[in-house]
Simulated assay, not measured.
Amino acid sequence: MAAWTTNDIPDQSNRTVVVTGANSGLGAETARALARAGAQVVLACRDVAKGQEVADGIGENAQVRRLDLADLSSVREFAAGLAATHETIDVLVNNAGVMAVPFRRTADGFEMQIGTNHFGHFALTALLLGRITDRVVTVSSTMHRIGKIDLDDVNWERRRYERWPAYGQSKLANLLFAYELQRRLAAHGSPVKSIAVHPGYSSTNLQYRSESRYGKLVELVTPVIGQSAKMGALPSLYAATSPDAEPGGFYGPGGLFEMRGHPKKVSSNARSHDEYVASRLWELSERLCDVQTPLTST
């Protein structure tokens, strides 16, 4: 793949894209680039005021709607509101997330990281899937490699909580979901694509809000070795717009250790391709989130 940039984004006129977590960082850069290419972008943000600042900078191609992925009632409200105004949505970019936060729970009692990063996006995708016409892009991380899905204790009710393994579990869940979604879409003859991405090591607010003991070190190191949010957003933009983005593909930076660089197709670990765990996680997610899709059975 050549050095793909935002200049390669095809014309997005007459297309609607929903980007979660678009009030800052990768989400904001994704929204800006899509809007410049002509798309109507819905900034789905927990912090509406910050989202509005981004939207004001974009102009008439952007609108802000409140979405708190750590609260399923908010996810349902957002999906219902969007359905009332949009018959179809071309692309959903599941971008928002939290990283390595201290132990806490979502409004629905999920561990915060898997609750926000996976369950919130799973429910959102399920509720919007009937309106999505082109593709679903889910942002994972190279940290999926340290993750392990404990189907009997995904919410850390019996295990001693460890913030980085919990983050890794949530990012592995993102990949298992993206791959399983593609399998189910294909089995049902749907033309919709499910594509996963990761941003490498990008200098964004996520790096500074981990609340971990290494927070100060991260603040010092990130500007030196991390790439810009604009570069980190390129895999998402490629997956969301390129006609060459493959269904079921995984894209990330093409540089050393996939930390920075232009997007390319990358690989993920064996755990992310475990179809049994992916199917079980899908069923568990449907039950815990109380949502179902036309893809419930394959």
Rank of each mutant, 00 (worst) to 15 (best):
M99V: 04
A229T: 09
L69R: 13
A270E: 14
L217G: 08
M259D: 12
S297V: 10
G21T: 13
S285W: 01
R260A: 15
M1T: 12
V101Y: 04
T16E: 07
I132T: 07
A240N: 01
L129Y: 02
A70C: 12
L151W: 11
A70S: 10
M259W: 15
H188S: 06
D108Y: 04
G115E: 08
G59A: 06
A31E: 00
P294L: 04
M231P: 05
S190E: 12
D108I: 12
A229G: 14
Q40F: 12
V17G: 02
Y238E: 00
R271A: 15
L129H: 10
S24M: 12
A196Q: 03
D47F: 02
S202W: 01
G51C: 13
I225N: 10
A173N: 02
Q292E: 15
R36W: 05
W156D: 05
G261L: 01
E211M: 10
Q207F: 04
N7E: 11
P243Q: 03
V136S: 00
T298S: 13
L175D: 00
Q207Y: 07
V41Y: 00
S203Q: 11
L172Y: 04
P10I: 05
S24N: 12
F103L: 12
S279W: 02
R280D: 11
E157F: 14
Y238T: 03
M231I: 10
N155Y: 13
G115I: 15
G120R: 02
L281C: 02
T16H: 05
G255F: 03
E29M: 09
E60I: 07
F257D: 10
G252M: 01
A173R: 01
T85V: 10
G25P: 02
R260Q: 07
R46N: 07
Q169N: 15
V41S: 02
W164N: 08
M112K: 06
A28E: 01
R280T: 13
R159M: 15
P263Y: 03
S210M: 08
P10S: 08
A49M: 03
V266I: 15
E60R: 11
R65V: 13
T20M: 00
